[in-house]
């Protein structure tokens, strides 16, 4: 939460620098050296701040992931934060993606079971649907066993 607050504050600072530049557009007495210096400094800040912020937001989970099917490579359940963080990759994708989906106790227990007995499971995929609920995207984990239960009978 504190990171989100920091992000909002820094973005507000960025907006303030752009507003300062707007004011400078309409100031007639631009020959004063300190005004020129301040404009140059604020211009540099306005140019660079988004890049600095981008370095901070890269790697964070996406709470609104693009719909589709992802192969699950790993997960982390955060019950306190009511979220399941998923490290996944789309079959046609070139690099993994970090998703955040709402916490569901049934899903968390199933994932815990998978973590304890990895050898009996073949593949886990997650379907992210276009609809979203109040807490995040609608999703479904598909956990495929190596041998289906029906085959064992």
């Amino acid at each position: 939460m504190s990171e989100l607050l920091l992000f909002i504050v820094i973005y507000a600072l960025y907006a303030a620098t752009v507003c300062f530049l707007f004011v400078m557009l309409f100031i007639r007495e631009f020959r004063r050296w300190w005004l020129r210096g301040a404009t140059f400094a604020f211009g540099l800040i306005a140019l660079g701040l988004p890049f600095w912020l981008a370095n901070g937001t890269l790697g964070h989970p996406d709470p609104w992931p693009p719909p589709g099917r992802y192969d699950v490579l790993g997960w982390d359940v955060d019950e306190g934060g009511s979220a399941i963080y998923v490290f996944a990759m789309q079959p046609e994708g070139s690099e993994p993606y970090h998703l955040r989906v709402p916490f569901e106790l049934g899903t968390a227990l199933k994932l815990q079971e998978v973590a304890q007995e990895t050898s009996i499971y073949k593949q886990i995929t997650i379907d992210v649907r276009p609809e979203s609920t109040e807490h995040g995207p609608d999703y479904a984990f598909n956990i495929e066993r190596v041998f289906k239960v029906d085959e064992l009978r």
């Binding site: 981008a54 890269l58 709470p63």
Partner: peptide, 25 residues
């Protein structure tokens, strides 16, 4: 004025687009 107004929002869209992607640094 138009460019400044657009540049107020462009970084926000860019930053939302970075979510989920791996950080190379």
């Amino acid at each position: 004025v138009v460019s400044g107004a657009v540049s107020l929002w462009l970084p926000l869209f860019a930053l939302l687009d970075t979510l989920g992607l791996p950080n190379p640094y």
